[in-house]
Write a protein that binds this DNA or RNA. Sequence first.
DNA 1: TATTTAATGCAATTAAGTTGCATAAATTAT
DNA 2: ATAATTTATGCAACTTAATTGCATTAAATA
Lengths: 138, 138
Amino acid sequence: MQENLKQILKNHSLRITDCRLDVMQYFLDEKNALSQGDLENRFTEYDRVTLYRTLNSFLDSGILHKIPNETGSATYGLCHDTCSPEHHDHNHVHFKCNTCGQIECLDEKQPIPNISLPKGYEAEGVNLIVDGKCANCA
Amino acid sequence: MQENLKQILKNHSLRITDCRLDVMQYFLDEKNALSQGDLENRFTEYDRVTLYRTLNSFLDSGILHKIPNETGSATYGLCHDTCSPEHHDHNHVHFKCNTCGQIECLDEKQPIPNISLPKGYEAEGVNLIVDGKCANCA
DNA sequence: TATTTAATGCAATTAAGTTGCATAAATTAT
DNA sequence: ATAATTTATGCAACTTAATTGCATTAAATA
């Protein structure tokens, strides 16, 4: 299992470190999106700057993506296999529970509509966020 | 004109104050979404806490809505007339320019698809954010 | 106009995001 | 396997956003 994680890091030209392995495992274990604060709570043994840079390196290499939300703090989710630094799968569908606040990826292939933009505008990606109540809170 | 603004505040049971009138006018003048920082830059005569609370009172009363984004700071846009504290129009379509960073509401009636959620989940609203290049930056 | 109620400004706190730099660890070349 | 090189980490420090309490001021109501 650990070997898988190491391979992922290698594939993205990232050095194999304890922090990166632990953080990646955490993302794999948690189906939900995670924030900087979540990591700080989970890994008190790592400096918060290290966690911050771990998130950024994962972001740059296409392992994670940022999930837009209104809370004012960034949340991150694992990218599908199709994501890479060169080619990001820009069409993400996420669900945010208005009660417990959890954000998760609805990574089943979801139909995202073509939005008609004003003249001169160019679309690069589409984010769709459904909010409501998750199964636990409904 | 000023009378319109006052009426809007009255309709939402908000007291008429200079700050609220100025902030609302600013939102009406700017077609783009605005952040706390934008207000602080524009209105140095008001304390940042006052601006913060103005945004919140507009949010609570349904005059503004928060626009989800990945930057980690909240942005706000005017709600359509159909919004009220009781009944929010939850289906918003926004455009974010990846170059200049501006966020605007695409308030034309846009078709938002039905997303199929996992069992037990209840949808309350849908946010759709298209990112790319605006006419100025394309 | 007096009373009541809510908004404002100020001080202060928490948290997120960010950078520079010395040290330690991981990769690579020998 | 070890030395050289490159990158990651931890620490200190700083910036900005979000937030709360409280005294003061202003708006709505009686």
